[in-house]
């Protein structure tokens, strides 16, 4: 079957089977390889993308369900060389170690901040609880979300060396 989907503002047509996972379409067919597979069972959040404005695990979404959808992947977050404030915040707080959780984690953070622009610690923890990070212990990721909130509110939040 042929499906049409908009990925990072660009319309794409893909020849696929109805049961192919959105994760595979993004990675294998369209080469948006920033979307990672950590478990393939909806348990880790590495494959997180934003579909029609909502956070989804792309390993659980089938081609059929993705037909006509609008998708944002990590590659669509920065504009050219200009990083999104959440991406900047992840770098500045040291929230990135191996980076395998990072694309999903950043999209989950963005989605949280879209809903709650100034989240408290509990809201951040809950908002990210579907995304596993094995490296950081989450501390700096939580810091990154707080810094992102300040950046997005226009308070700069530069805290660099």
């Amino acid at each position: 079957m042929k499906i049409t989907l908009t990925v990072n503002d660009e319309k794409r047509e893909v020849e696929t089977s109805p049961t192919t996972r959105l994760l595979d379409i993004l990675r294998d067919d369209l080469h948006f390889t920033g979307t990672k597979e950590g478990c393939g069972k909806g348990e880790c959040g590495a494959c997180t993308v934003i579909m029609n404005g909502k956070l989804v695990s792309s390993c659980l979404v089938l081609a059929l369900q993705a037909d006509g959808a609008e998708i944002l992947t990590i590659e669509g977050l920065s504009k050219g060389d200009q990083l999104h404030p959440v991406q900047e915040a992840y770098i500045e707080t040291g929230a990135v170690q191996c980076g395998f959780c990072t694309p999903g984690m950043i999209l989950a953070s963005k989605s949280l901040l879209d809903r709650i622009p100034d989240p408290d610690e509990q809201q951040i923890k809950r908002g990210l609880s579907g995304n596993i990070c094995r490296c950081t212990g989450y501390t700096k990721i939580i810091e990154a979300v707080k810094l992102s909130a300040r950046k997005l509110a226009g308070k700069g939040g530069e805290e660099d060396e």
Binding site: K41, C44, K125, R126, S129, N131
Partner: peptide, 17 residues
């Protein structure tokens, strides 16, 4: 043999340092 049966810490388990 999966993350449903094998639990690892999530953000909810992250303490103050």
């Amino acid at each position: 043999p999966d993350l449903t049966g094998y639990l690892v810490p999530t953000a909810m388990d992250s303490p103050h340092f």
